[in-house]
């Protein structure tokens, strides 16, 4: 909602992603802040930021698939694995430059998404969710089975080099941030195009959408393709960040993390997906210090406290949002903004 007295006089104003000059300035300042963040933050936190960025890209894909088009997926991490393994195989076995394998990773993951998205035409609801769960296990089983994909030991891949030297963590954060910004812009932009509006129409009522002349099959598959393409890009980033990937990284739990990021951030909001990624990773970051406290309080629990606490905190966080705040962080933020904008009036 716009502040009192401000109107959109031209269609371009209504469509603009960044509306006012103040917002442009804030955006530029924010970007500069984020880019320079790696210069004065400790290495631990920059590494955390890189992981947040990687997960945010995958969560954005999830947002396009689930939030915009309503095609639920619980197999996002398997598609991420497709991207990561494409990068690793092309990089280590064929010596391809990472910049060539970047689009290829996305494409392979997208094609995988197309294959498992085909049932989406016939089935929806939790039948589709179950298909994607099956996709998760089938894909990961195939990766684990063959020596070509490194079986259970995984693959190592060469680091990205610029001018002969490998990227250090500062430069990798710049790379991550660059990709996140491009992906964010792409996601924001797609919502203003015909394709994005088709997605929303299919989500809200697919029968009505079809009657209006939208090709359901193509639209749903496109949503799957784009969502999994994002996952592939995230996988490419992750693979080059870790430099060694194993099948154990791409678990079913991780897929649920991505879904949870979209739910916590708020279904159908782009910035929500990023907020969800930050929120979940913040909780994840808090786990080790918290588990120390628990360890000291209950010395008899000597087992796997960090792992167990991570599961419990994650579950409690998502449950909280499902029960108390089902519209997510984005909605709450909008309410707060609205409150200050309208103050002292209630509406």
């Amino acid at each position: 909602m716009l502040p009192s007295g401000v109107f959109n006089r031209r269609p371009q104003q209504d469509m603009a992603i960044v509306r006012t000059r103040a917002q442009w300035l804030l955006l530029a300042a924010g970007l500069v802040f984020l880019f320079t963040l790696s210069l004065y933050m400790s290495e631990v936190w920059v590494n955390w930021l890189i992981t947040v960025g990687i997960y945010a890209v995958a969560a954005l894909g999830m947002h396009i698939m689930t939030g915009l088009c309503g095609q639920f997926s619980m197999g996002q991490s398997a598609f991420m694995a497709l991207g990561a393994y494409t990068a690793a195989i092309l990089g280590s076995r064929y010596g391809l430059s990472p910049w060539v394998s970047l689009p290829l990773s996305g494409l392979v993951a997208g094609l995988g998404g197309l294959i498992f998205g085909i049932p989406a035409l016939r089935i929806k609801g939790f039948y589709l969710v179950l298909t994607t769960i099956a996709a998760q296990f089938v894909i990961m089983w195939f990766i684990k089975q063959f020596d070509y994909t490194g079986a259970t030991y995984g693959l190592t891949l060469p680091a990205i080099t610029i001018g002969g030297s490998a990227l250090d963590y500062t430069q990798f954060w710049w790379l991550t941030l660059g990709i996140v910004v491009v992906m964010l812009f792409f996601t924001k932009n797609i919502q203003r195009t015909t394709t994005g509006r088709k997605f929303v129409a299919v989500r809200d009522n697919d029968l009505a959408a079809e009657v209006m002349g939208i090709n359901l099959f193509r639209t749903k598959l496109l949503a799957f393709f784009i969502g999994c393409f994002f996952a592939g890009i995230a996988g490419w980033l992750w693979a080059h960040y870790l430099l060694r990937i194993t099948p154990d990284l791409f678990t079913f739990d991780l897929s649920l993390w991505f879904l949870a990021m979209v739910i916590i951030g708020g279904m159908g909001s782009t910035s929500g997906a990023v907020m969800g990624a930050v929120a979940i990773m913040a909780v994840d970051k808090a786990v080790p210090s918290l588990s120390d406290v628990v360890q000291r309080a209950f010395p008899s629990l000597g087992f796997q406290i960090p792992f167990a606490l991570g599961l419990i905190l994650f579950a409690v966080l998502v449950m909280f949002f499902l029960l108390i705040e089902p519209k997510g962080l984005y909605y709450r933020l909008e309410r707060i903004k609205l409150y200050y904008r309208l103050n002292p009036f209630a509406y």
């Binding site: 739990d253 649920l256 087992f303 796997q304 792992f307 167990a308 606490l309 991570g310 599961l311 419990i312 994650f314 579950a315 409690v316 449950m319």
Partner: peptide, 8 residues
């Protein structure tokens, strides 16, 4: 997840 966490 919660049950699994408690179990661990």
């Amino acid at each position: 997840f919660l049950l699994r966490g408690v179990r661990y």
